[in-house]
Design a protein around this nucleic acid. Structure first.
Lengths: 312, 312
DNA sequence: TACTGAGAATGAAAAAATTTCACCATGATT
DNA sequence: AATCATGGTGAAATTTTTTCATTCTCAGTA
């Protein structure tokens, strides 16, 4: 007999494209998922997806179950919300910090959804804190931190949201624009535009330049993505941003983008949450919404995360 | 986390009104259900229903979950149907016999539904067999038998459909019509109209007259309910039928009805199925549809089964 | 008031399921 | 060939679910 568990697993599988990542999403090991899916396939008496491909490809039966999941799980969540409200328990607070500066783009729909559906939870993105977000999370000054580098901290759980690729935005007429990818060395002569945060927190440095021991000729900072884009478009520098942050500018042919290195620089974005708050139904709902809307937004704007990888 | 299992249990609980019967429906013990519901209540963090009342009364939270169940479970069944079809396994045959003569009334909607949704299953109600249905079921000449007296037979499972009360239909001006109930002795002077089947298979005899060692003055038979009603209405006899078979005539004030004895005569209708066929998805679907549509039909026509009992 | 019986609750034990562990297989990449 | 990442597998461990045996509760009633 089909259970919701199975449907949740299938959704995670579709969104991540692999058993390993799907398993992480549903808080199980890859092995457990393999068993669970095998079991489900035997109940249903048909294979559900092909494991050879990357991302996995669903069979007709798998797609039918996914359709069911899409139809049903949102209703289940609605019900859970209503029930949580009826239980009338303390609803708590959701103050969050965002390390990844351009995340607002996909975070805002999530926050809007959340404000609508959990009006009793106090949601806020306090700006202008100058402390380190992760320790502040442990200290209960924050309740959720969006970050790309999870550091093991006692009592803090990292829920993976999605994988993305860091790309280098360059002016359309820039010589690099015609290359498939750029080497670290090629940046030694460039002006690099970044958000005004520590370099160690920027993927270009930590995953690309620093390992190759290269420093760009000059570093400029800008607060907003659109300002960076202006600078890049006018040839005054290059800048590294997540694929999904660039997509709208790429579509309008405002700038060009190239991979960082032959393999590209990939990161996973996590939501860091204290383990205690992780249990709360509203937190579960927030995380799932974040995962789903980020997935939707990212894929709606441009089939980025996964496809870029499989094309590469 | 809520699972489909919980929703199925809640539906059974609503339809039966008690843990004991609900447990039978979902093939569990009463104890298991008690535990399961307690566990569900703790997950949801609210009580779901009041156990003191008969039938049980749901809380707001319970009703919310029932609403979810009503919304979701039909979709799940649709999906299961599609999947069974995709798996393309042998679909089999559903030949059935009906011991309870007036069952056609609620059975027909079920059969219609079934024919629509499982066109590949050969469904039929062969008429005019003169053998005993239950042995024929064991012999694989039949696949399902609707019966009110389950006899333990090796390899045959009895799925309870619903409880009903046998009532005595009398002419409106009949002296008994004004009584709340009738004693067995009062029938000694009456003409009793029955379906043309063995007396041992009629509740009036097995549960009412025979234990009191009373025989009616005369016995007439009729094939169809409407013919019986004509005879009764014209004062040519009385007849015992299930409450739901009578309800349409009672509503139109065509005849009156009285209880058989102070407590009334109650029976449960079962669907007898061979254990092997019980597993097949289409059989599961048939049984659940039968349970649900009988429940709906019975309650739509007149709040009978349960309510009559609690009023009494 | 005590007795009885039906339905529901409960704790411990049993059974079943799910999950993990440790290891193997495969295929892509170096 | 060697390595690495991913997925599959059987057996063991763990967790969940179910049952068993018993108790509790509440009507109905003697």
């Amino acid at each position: 007999m089909i259970e919701l568990r199975h449907l949740r697993t299938l959704l995670a599988l579709r969104e991540t494209g692999s058993l390993v990542e799907a398993a992480e999403r549903v808080h199980l090991t890859q092995s457990a998922l393999s068993h669970q899916l095998k079991d489900l396939e035997s109940r249903v008496d048909s294979p559900l997806f092909m494991r050879k491909t990357r991302p996995v490809e669903f069979t007709r039966a798998g797609l039918r179950l996914l359709a069911l999941a899409d139809q049903i799980l949102p209703e289940v969540r609605k019900a859970e919300r209503d029930l949580a409200r009826m239980a009338g328990t303390e609803m708590g607070r959701l103050h969050m910090a965002i390390e990844c500066h351009s995340c607002f783009q996909w975070l805002m729909p999530t926050v809007d959804y959340f404000r609508d559906h959990w009006p009793e939870v106090e949601i806020d993105i306090p700006s202008g804190h100058h402390f380190d977000p992760l320790p502040a999370l442990a200290r209960e000054q924050l309740d959720l931190v969006i970050t790309a580098d999870p550091q093991p901290i006692e009592g803090v759980h990292y829920a993976p949201l999605f994988r993305y690729e860091g790309l280098l935005a360059v002016a359309r007429q820039h010589p690099l624009a015609s290359q498939g990818f750029v080497t670290p060395e090629a940046l030694a002569d460039e002006t690099l535009i970044t958000y005004p945060v520590e370099q160690s927190r920027l993927d270009v440095f930590s995953q690309f330049l620093t390992p190759a021991n290269v420093r760009p000729r000059e570093i400029r900072t800008a607060e907003l993505t659109i300002m960076m884009m202006q600078l890049v478009a006018s040839g005054r520098g290059v800048c590294a941003l997540p694929n999904w942050a660039l997509s709208e500018y790429l579509e309008r042919d405002y700038v060009s983008a190239v991979k960082l290195g032959e393999q590209g620089v990939w990161s996973t974005l996590y939501a860091a949450v204290r383990e205690e708050t992780l249990e709360a139904p509203w937190m579960q709902d927030f995380l799932r919404t974040a995962q789903e809307t980020s997935f939707a937004v990212l894929n709606g704007i441009k089939p980025a995360t996964r496809d870029a990888e499989s094309i590469a």
